[in-house]
């Protein structure tokens, strides 16, 4: 049986189609936000927030909550807002602030779990926040619809507020001084980022979400020099890489997340090369 027939066969199964849809949509959302996050020096916010979510899960476990999702979502959104809203006047900036919150939350969460938890499967819990608690191949129909809805909302917000996001990201001081409500737009970006990351974290894990945020944006920035071109390119690139990555993983039987990241890395290599060649041609 060759690869093509194998693909056709696999596409008979709904869970394969679900995985493809969800993977591509999450790739789209995270790459749209990725350009802003990378430029605001928040590349690692995916990792940071997932550790915060882990801390929140630990607290939920200590209090014996059965449904931890609302708490996790609220805590993560609040952290994202605190991180992103501080803006350009912050005393502790971007990467350092993310590192602080992420390490702090991880340590406190682990400590709490050790002190109080009944479950002994600690490493399992830590692992699932890193690689996703529900595998992308075991998604239910509800999760798929949730994801579709979320992506539509995120994309719509991004398109409608595109120019404002640019203004606030490029020069927050000028935007504020001339009467743009920079605080409000930063808050909006923070909430959207937090929601996307929490949901994506459950579906695909925080390692993959970080890669999806960072790689497409950086690849596009190698070649393109305007904000619009970079945004469009990184969205298209991210969607293509996720699509190809999932197909390869189905045919080759490799782990989905890691395969997508590997394809992203390859694309980054290609774009870096193209950037060097294009840069050389101009001179």
């Amino acid at each position: 049986m060759n690869g093509w027939e194998k693909l056709i066969l696999y596409f008979q199964y709904p869970f394969v189609r679900y995985a493809l849809i969800v993977g591509v949509l999450i790739a789209l959302c995270s790459s749209l936000l990725g350009v802003t996050l990378v430029l605001k020096r928040f590349s690692f916010i995916g990792d940071g927030l997932s550790h915060v979510a882990f801390g929140a899960m630990a607290i939920a476990a200590v209090f014996g909550m059965t449904n931890e999702m609302p708490l996790v979502l609220v805590v993560t959104i609040v952290s994202a807002v605190l991180l992103l809203r501080t803006g350009q006047n912050a005393k502790i900036k971007g990467d350092a602030a993310v590192a602080m919150i992420s390490v702090g939350a991880l340590a406190i969460g682990y400590l709490l779990m050790n002190l109080f938890a009944k479950s002994s499967n600690l490493s399992g819990d830590v692992c699932s926040t890193l690689f996703g608690s529900t595998s992308i191949l075991t998604l239910t129909q509800t999760e798929v619809w949730l994801c579709v809805l979320l992506s539509v909302v995120v994309t719509a917000i991004f398109v409608l507020f595109y120019h404002k996001i640019f203004a606030v990201t490029f020069d927050e001081g000028f935007a504020k001084a001339t009467g743009t409500n920079a605080g409000l737009y930063n808050l909006m970006i923070a909430v959207v980022v937090a929601v996307v990351i929490v949901l994506a974290m459950n579906l695909v894990g925080s390692l993959l979400i970080s890669a999806l945020v960072i790689f497409p944006a950086l690849s596009a920035m190698r070649v393109f020099k305007s904000f619009r071109a970079v945004t469009i390119c990184s969205a298209v690139l991210s969607v293509c890489c996720a699509f190809v990555g999932i197909l390869i993983s189905i045919v080759g039987g490799t782990p989905v997340g890691s395969t997508i990241v590997a394809v992203d890395i390859a694309a980054f290599g290609g774009f870096s090369g193209a950037g060097i060649i294009l840069g050389g041609m101009k001179k």
């Binding site: 120019h163 640019f166 203004a167 020069d171 001081g173 935007a175 001084a177 001339t178 920035m221 904000f227």
Partner: peptide
């Protein structure tokens, strides 16, 4: 407003057109 210095990140992709147009934001 013209600031004395603008701390624009070294790798920020923005064309002249996009920067000038962002002045119309308000």
């Amino acid at each position: 407003y013209l600031p004395q210095q603008t701390l624009v990140q070294r790798d920020f992709p923005a064309s002249v057109w996009e920067v000038v147009l962002s002045g119309c934001q308000n």
